[in-house]
């Protein structure tokens, strides 16, 4: 279980988040600048909140009262970046190999790489460099890196924003399977309510750095309570019939 209760001020923007993730994939939706990415960065340890606490499965990552701020390296929280952040000077295989959890050594590391490449069907890409890959391929490699790292929690920051619309749903299907395979709790950030509907059970609607609404995805679509949630539902290209096919 992830507990987040933090505040962070940057210029005129105040991030004031208070929520929990308990055993599922939590969607996080909101307009640009609503604080989605900043929240993820605070959870990962890349940004330091001004006050509050962050706790995962009873382990404190951040507590301003106790002066605790665990390094991102020791949090075991995976972060899938919008641009995937593959290391450009390393081949696909090297990108995955260097990310294998440190508890594995020698031949075992190699074995883990083979397994994950087979799982994500990227064996033929092993000698390629990131700049030679399509958006979908890059996403698979970034996911492979995360799987071999064996994190305790996953943060997915708009993973489909750089993917062509016609490829997106195939990748979403794959992602759903991969997340099932990993079996960890996830925060999935997006602009797109269709993606949330497909991947998540619960959803947080963010507005101006705060949680405007939290509900199940079905409840949000059928009965949005806040103005921002109403707008998100109203202006989405949402088609329940189409999504129910999945």
């Amino acid at each position: 279980m992830l507990k987040v209760c933090i505040k962070k001020k940057i210029d005129n923007f105040l991030l004031d988040m208070d929520f929990e993730v308990n055993g599922n994939i939590l969607g996080m939706i909101g307009a640009s600048g609503s604080g989605k990415s900043l929240t993820l960065k605070c959870i990962a340890g890349i940004e330091k909140p001004d006050e509050g606490y962050i706790e995962l499965n009873g382990k404190t990552f951040f507590d301003s009262n106790k002066n605790i701020n665990v390094r991102p390296q020791n949090r075991k929280v995976a972060y899938l970046f919008q641009n995937y952040a593959l290391f450009p000077q390393m081949t696909v295989k090297k990108n995955i190999l260097v990310s294998v959890n440190k508890k594995y050594e020698g031949i075992e590391r190699e074995k883990k790489v083979r397994e994950v490449m087979s799982l994500l069907h990227i064996e033929e890409l092993e000698k390629k460099y990131p700049f030679e890959l399509s958006g979908g391929e890059q996403q698979r490699v970034a996911l492979a890196r995360i799987i071999v790292n064996e994190p305790d929690f996953l943060l997915l920051d708009e993973p489909f924003s750089a993917i062509d619309a016609f490829l997106k749903w195939n990748l979403a299907k794959e992602l759903k399977n991969v997340l099932k395979h990993i079996g960890k709790e996830v925060i999935f950030v997006t602009h797109n309510i269709n993606e949330v509907y497909y991947l998540c059970n619960d959803v947080l609607v963010l507005s101006c750095g705060k949680v405007a609404e939290r509900s199940s995805i079905k409840e949000l679509i059928n009965n949005p309570k806040t103005e921002i949630a109403k707008n998100i539902v109203k202006y989405s290209d949402f088609s329940r019939e189409e999504l129910d096919e999945f």
Partner: peptide, 15 residues
């Protein structure tokens, strides 16, 4: 330098 590469390295546990 694209700092997200360093962030990615940190979240993957690199020193």
């Amino acid at each position: 330098f694209d700092e997200t590469l360093a962030y990615a390295g940190k979240t993957l546990g690199f020193s």
